[in-house]
Amino acid sequence: MIPLSWYLIVAAGLFVVGIFGVLTRKNLIGILMGVELMLNAVNINLLAFWSYLYPQSLSGLTFVAVVFVAAAAEAAVGLALIISIYRRRTTVNAEEINLLRG
């Protein structure tokens, strides 16, 4: 008998930890890990809402599946970019990568 609120609070916690990681990690892979944490928090929320409020509906599950696919795609492209950048500039430090400077 776990109340819905527990899941939401854990998910919120995971989410802000992820944000914190994305904003403060210097290592690009670290940033990517933060993003993964945030996506996981989203999934907990989706499944919690599905399970507690709309257990008969299938849309919640579809959302979760799509988030999974997005996460996989994000990880693949993100890591490919990181490898590519590393190969070119031999760094994975986000502070040293400023090609987009105006």
Binding site: V22, L23, T24, I31, A94, E95, L100, R101, G102
Partner: peptide, 21 residues
């Protein structure tokens, strides 16, 4: 316009993210 906005563009992804957040 861009010339004026470019002051904000440091090219560092985390600074953009901070503003977004």
């Amino acid at each position: 316009l861009g010339g004026r906005m470019r002051q904000m563009q440091s090219g560092k992804v985390q600074q953009y993210l901070i503003l977004t957040t």
